[in-house]
């Protein structure tokens, strides 16, 4: 091994820089991207409250419900 190992090669620095930039760009993209799954979870929580549905109830709603 030569002492030059200590200083990263220009290519190495470039790779790292590029990686950091990609991650940064990815973050911006993800933060702007609409979090569909989280929104659905939030909607479910709110709808269950407004309609007084038992927690965690999925699509099929109270089929043979109490009211009617």
């Amino acid at each position: 091994m030569t002492p030059s190992v200590r200083t990263p090669s220009p290519a190495g620095v470039m790779t790292l820089l590029l990686g950091a930039m990609l991650v940064a760009v990815g973050c911006v993209t993800i933060n702007i991207y609409f979090p569909a799954a989280a929104a659905e979870k939030a909607a479910d929580r709110i709808i269950d409250g407004v309609w007084q549905l038992p927690n965690g109830q999925g699509g099929q709603a109270p089929a043979d419900g109490d009211k009617q």
Binding site: A20, V23, C27, A38
Partner: peptide, 24 residues
């Protein structure tokens, strides 16, 4: 190098936040 690795880690942490819950 430490700086760059730090930036990468920070970036990764940012990613995690986006996948949590929406504030309601």
């Amino acid at each position: 190098r430490t700086l760059l690795v730090g930036a990468l880690l920070l970036g990764a942490a940012g990613h995690g936040r986006a996948q949590g819950n929406l504030e309601i």
